[in-house]
């Protein structure tokens, strides 16, 4: 047996061990893995094995805002989940000790800068670079360039109009550079093939349980549509997330399963069931 063969076997053993450890983490350990970015949402982190993969493209389908009378899906307006993006950007920002730059590519995903400030902490605001390309090709090029830069640690982009080859290019580059790319896409783009690591669908939702008068906590239900390379440990991949306006943080207060009677929940369940039956 040659030396090269021996080295390859050793690498293979290490990789298998790493995969086994990751599976153990997903079984209930709270410590995030080194190659993961903890979302800060306990249930979701547990399901993903520690958080979002640090090197990969993650697609987030925004909230559709169809006016009554509009039948064509292309006419539907959509809004990217900016609170969730800002929260995840903060999570990635806090994970790194060197405070890397965050690049926001595409005007659609630029949040109102106030959400990038947490109390007196303006680091995210000061380390954010906003890029506004005119077209899809420009956005893909800017994402590519940002991923290759040593100064950038995190990329948030408007992913509308990205096709399979573009997502493949970004996914491979993100993996090679071990950086996270969050791409926000219109919901109608769900049917387009993509090489993204994970795909998420966001809908507006009411808080479960009794509402306290005089309080508004913007909330959303997020559904994990795809998680490549790992089987989610939870059967029902939907969670309720809530924006804490005082702290500027997105919380995961309770499972969506608590929303037994809400029409939103019924819709989510019906869709999940339909997808399961389709896959069967």
């Amino acid at each position: 047996m040659s030396t090269t063969r021996h080295v390859n076997l050793r690498e293979l053993t290490d990789r298998i061990r790493a995969i086994e450890q990751r599976c153990e983490i997903s079984d209930g350990c709270d410590e995030p893995a080194a190659d993961r970015i903890a979302t800060g949402w306990t249930d979701i982190d547990a399901a993903l094995g520690g958080g979002l993969a640090a090197g990969g493209l993650h697609e987030w389908f925004g909230v559709e805002d169809t006016a009554r009378g509009e039948t064509h899906p292309a006419d539907a307006r959509w809004t990217p989940p900016l609170c969730i993006l800002a929260h995840l950007a903060w999570q990635a920002f806090d994970r790194s000790s060197s405070s890397p730059w965050v690049v926001w590519v595409g005007r659609a995903c630029h949040p109102y800068p106030r959400v990038l400030v947490r109390g007196a902490d303006r680091r995210m605001l000061e380390r954010s670079l906003f890029v506004s390309p005119r077209d899809v090709a420009g956005r893909v090029w800017a994402m590519d360039l940002a991923l290759r830069s040593q100064a950038v640690g995190f990329v948030v982009a408007d992913g509308s109009g990205l096709d399979r080859s573009a997502t493949q290019r970004i996914q491979l580059l993100a993996r090679a550079q071990a950086k996270v790319v969050l791409a926000v896409c219109p919901p109608r783009q769900r049917s387009i093939l993509s090489a993204a690591q994970t795909r998420w669908l966001v809908r507006t939702a009411h808080a479960p349980g009794q509402r306290r008068p005089g309080e508004i906590h913007p909330g959303w239900s997020v559904e994990l549509l795809r998680c490549k390379g790992m089987r989610p440990t939870q059967d029902h991949p939907s969670w309720y997330l809530e924006w804490n306006r005082a702290e500027g943080v997105v919380h995961c207060p309770a499972r969506l399963a608590d929303l037994a009677g809400s029409p939103q929940q019924r819709e989510v369940r019906t869709e999940s069931r339909r997808r399961r039956s389709a896959s069967a």
Binding site: L129, P133, A151
Partner: peptide, 17 residues
């Protein structure tokens, strides 16, 4: 990074807040 972005997209397209 900023040089390349500005060169292709123009100075107004690359901003900070």
């Amino acid at each position: 990074l900023v040089d390349r972005l500005v060169d292709r997209l123009g100075g107004a397209a690359v901003t900070c807040v």
